[in-house]
Design a protein around this nucleic acid. Structure first.
Length: 476
RNA sequence: CGAGGUGUAGCGCAGUUUGGUAGCGCGCUUGGUUCGGGACCAAGAGGUCGUGGGUUCAAGUCCCGUCACCUCGACCA
């Protein structure tokens, strides 16, 4: 394989120095910049455009499953946090608290939301009267703040953008179904739009959301074989409905507590797609969410007719629904090739005097680097077909890696060997916390999800009868 | 929170060991020639060396404090 380093001088080696590669790429491609406050990031236009595309796709899916958008306040009375015991225990260490407003010390401190179960629960208790009001199916697009100790752009920041769905149902079954449905929506979205195949399943007690009865997670395999939690869906049972008095009068004339769920994905998804698809030349953005799907590069731009031909082609593509841009800057073509490859644009079109004369264009795929000559006629059709093929190819590549890099282990030693080679490891587990902690301690791997429909004889740690097969991995 | 590292022009760095006029590359501005994988020539602009104090005739350099960021670990979307 050709040395990609000859093209990219300014990005750390992706195989040997992956963390550094990541920060190099997100900064140099202008996805983000660091904010002045520790752990904060500025999402720059190129990064925000990816988020907008993610929002658009997800929002359509939420609406299609019956949800409506709303917006709840950023500031939450501190006392709300303390109403659900596990919840406050989990979140208190990382909340930011406002104590002064208008120059005066506040009577009650206000929490900047780390998540909104509490304030939304408070409002739902007001809104819910009758079984006829159910289900309540609301989503909000918002920012949240969690005072994290170590941070990295997109993956963990003090403030991040996300969506959080919060629903109330009349029965346990219905709420559980909702939690699983939304997990499925996340999964389908990840595969269709981000080209990231994921593992989904229930989380262990240790890993579940603070205040949930059950948490279901979506885990994605990154380039280095580590796992990234890319989304979660929680079945909250009656924990929050009891803490916030979310009751309704049922058909039988008695008051009952509702069953609630919450589910969300965040700007971390941008980090996920970077670390899932990127290569030595930089980003590789799946066409569905790419801010620029096709970049047109004029060759010998000052020659007569070149810029005109490029602009005509760009407009034609744009009219056909392709996010196409042209780079008419003074930089040399070679510089532009590298720049736009680093920025992960799925498809490049080179158009020079020779092509124009021959009625052709040169297309170059970001995923395979393949050069293709095609007639300028019907360009939109050609481009759309290629973009679809690139999307499919990225998913297929990721799927192959996901399948190849899952191994099974019968002992902690085997588990360690597996994760050290950059694999996900399936192993039997007795279900006790001690074994989970021991495994974490000895292998630096954590239980990502419980695998459904598979059985193991023994716990890989203590040797007792296994209750579950668990997927272990080192995680971000 | 533990260990290590870095703060000097927009970016990347040298200069600190041994105190003595603030440097280099890239980028930026102007003009010209170029253009199919990071072009070239010429002329320019740009810095209270993270920050506060101290030592000294003199501090980017030495001493004390402090802040921020990065990397690796323990906890989290």
């Amino acid at each position: 394989m050709a040395k990609d380093n000859q093209f990219v001088k300014e990005i750390a080696d992706i195989e040997t120095d992956f963390p550094r590669w990541y920060t190099d790429v997100v900064i140099k491609t202008k996805l983000v910049d660091y904010g002045p406050v520790k752990g904060t990031m500025v999402i720059r236009p190129y990064g925000y455009a990816i988020w907008e595309n993610i929002q658009k796709e997800l929002d359509a899916r939420f609406k299609a499953t019956g949800h409506q958008n709303a917006y709840f306040p950023l500031l939450i009375p501190y006392s709300f946090m303390t109403r659900e015991a596990e919840h406050v225990e989990g979140f208190a260490p990382e909340v930011a608290v406002v104590t002064v407003g208008g120059g005066e010390t506040l009577a009650e401190p206000l929490v900047i939301r780390p998540t909104s179960e509490t304030i939304i629960g408070e409002m739902y208790s007001k809104w819910l009267q009758s079984y006829r009001d159910l289900p309540i199916l609301i989503n909000q697009w918002a920012n949240v703040v969690r005072w994290e100790k170590t941070t990295r752009p997109f993956l963990r920041t003090s403030e991040f953008l996300w969506q959080e769905g919060h629903t109330v149902h009349a029965s346990e079954e219905e709420a559980m179904e909702e939690a699983l449905t939304m997990l499925g929506v996340f999964r389908e979205f990840a595969e269709t739009c981000l080209a990231i195949p994921v593992f989904t399943g229930r989380k262990t007690e240790k890993e579940k959301f603070a205040g949930a009865v059950a948490t279901f997670g979506m885990e994605a395999m990154m380039h280095d074989g580590k796992s990234l939690q890319a989304g979660t869906s929680h079945y909250l049972g009656q924990n929050f409905s009891k803490a916030f008095d979310i009751q309704f009068l049922d058909k039988d004339g008695t008051h009952k507590y509702g069953y609630t769920t919450s589910w969300g994905v965040s700007t971390r998804l941008i980090g996920a797609l970077i670390m899932a698809h990127g290569d030595q030349r930089g980003l590789v953005i799946p066409p569905v969410v790419a801010p620029v799907q096709t970049i047109l590069i004029p060759i010998a731009a000052k020659k007569e007719g070149v810029l005109e031909a490029v602009e005509k082609l760009r407009q034609e593509l744009f009219a056909a629904g392709v996010r196409a841009e042209s780079d008419t800057s003074d930089n040399s073509p070679g510089w532009k090739f590298n720049e736009w490859e680093m920025k992960g644009v799925p498809l490049r079109i080179e158009l020079g005097p020779r092509d124009i004369e021959a009625g052709k264009m040169v297309l170059v795929r970001r995923d395979t680097h393949e050069k293709i000559e095609a007639p300028i006629e019907n360009a939109a059709q050609t481009v759309k077909a290629l973009l679809a093929d690139i999307q499919a190819n990225l998913l297929e590549k990721a799927r192959k890696r996901k399948e190849e890099r899952v191994v099974t282990a019968n002992s902690v030693e085997e588990l360690l060997e597996g994760v050290e080679k950059g694999n996900f490891v399936k192993a039997g587990w007795c279900g006790c916390r001690e074994c989970e902690d021991t495994i974490k301690e000895k292998t630096a791997a954590s239980a990502r999800v419980i695998v459904e429909g598979e059985h193991a004889e023994k716990c890989c740690c203590c040797g007792k009868e296994a209750k579950h097969v668990v997927l272990f991995a080192r995680a971000y």
